[in-house]
């Protein structure tokens, strides 16, 4: 067989599945719904096949906004506001740094960034215990 033109191969890979534009239209519609009715939406990027170059182009196209938050919760997660306020790119990794999920969230604030009520309650108990200990130390000194 003849040798393939590797540059042509790379160009074809970059063209990919064509699903990138579908996702972007879905984001645009969701953003309209968020602005009009306050409806939040999550798009799971694993639900459509896309090549790695396509995913890179998608994130490049969405750009970077004003906020990037890193979360350490059983592995690293990141919530990044894109150049379109209200459109967030959220990635979850496990403790071995393997990618576990990648989402586009159309919302004022991704849920993963909020302190959770159960954690808040546990924090209250922990702080009360710590303060008791602190008082004991104060009395001893």
């Amino acid at each position: 067989m003849s040798r393939p033109d590797l540059n042509a191969v790379l160009r074809q890979r970059a063209r990919g599945t064509g699903n990138m534009v579908l996702v972007l239209h879905e984001v645009a519609h969701a953003l309209e719904a968020l602005a009009a009715r306050g409806e939040a939406r999550v798009i799971d990027l694993s639900s459509l096949p896309m090549t790695a170059p396509e995913l890179d182009r998608l994130t490049d196209w969405l750009g970077r906004g004003e906020v990037i938050a890193q979360i350490e919760a059983e592995g690293r997660s990141e919530a990044m506001e894109t150049a379109y306020p209200g459109v967030w790119l959220v990635t979850h990794r496990d403790r071995d740094d393997m990618l576990r999920g990648r989402y586009i969230e159309i919302t004022p604030l991704p849920e993963i960034l909020r302190s959770q009520p159960a954690d808040i309650a546990a924090a209250g108990r922990r702080m009360a215990r710590a303060l008791t200990h602190f008082s004991d130390l104060e009395e001893a000194s």
Partner: peptide, 13 residues
């Protein structure tokens, strides 16, 4: 030592 946030992340994935 697993936070509720971690659990939420697990449920999302």
């Amino acid at each position: 030592g697993i936070s509720r946030r971690s659990f939420l992340k697990f449920c999302t994935t």
